[in-house]
């Protein structure tokens, strides 16, 4: 039973990442593709957070830890960084899409292929 509870986040991660990849590969709307990227991003963040968890271990506050057993400390910093970076990249990409829409009036990835060959 307990094993299943621990495995549950990882199953969610796999679902989220495959959902995001499906969106990116098979949707033509650029905004939907960016949404797919954001879904992958959240999946990866969940992966990092759930990776750090060790059953019965303390929070990694070095100065006041009860013992030597602490959960992995860097994962949370990594996740926070990843969330911040994710915000910046998503905003930048969406602004690129807005520019494309303003210039040529299309957010279809099959029509935004002026650079090719």
């Amino acid at each position: 039973m307990n094993q299943w509870v621990i495995a549950l986040p990882f199953i969610t991660v796999a679902l989220l990442i495959s959902l995001g990849l499906y969106t990116i590969l098979f949707k033509r709307n650029l905004i939907k593709m960016i949404m797919g990227l954001a879904i992958i991003q959240n999946g990866v963040n969940l992966f990092l957070v759930s990776l750090a968890y060790r059953e019965g271990y303390a929070a990694p506050i070095w100065t006041s830890a009860p013992g030597e057993d602490m959960v992995l400390p860097t994962s949370h910093a990594l996740t926070l960084t990843s969330i911040v970076i994710g915000l910046a990249t998503t905003a930048l990409m969406l602004s690129f899409v807005i520019m494309l829409k303003k210039h040529k009036g299309s957010v279809d990835s099959f029509k935004n292929r002026r650079c090719r060959e």
Binding site: I24, L30, M33, I34, L37, I40, Q41, V44, F47, L48, L51, S75, L78, S82, I85, T89, L92, M93, F96, V97, M99, L100, H103, K104, N112, R113, R114, C115
Partner: peptide, 26 residues
């Protein structure tokens, strides 16, 4: 327009690559 389009493509594939890299770091 072409610059914006190229930047979007580069950004998109870089971010996706970065996420995969993050998985391997994890």
């Amino acid at each position: 327009v072409k610059s914006v389009e190229a930047a979007l493509k580069y950004m998109f594939i870089s971010v996706l690559g970065g996420l995969f890299f993050l998985v391997s770091i994890g």
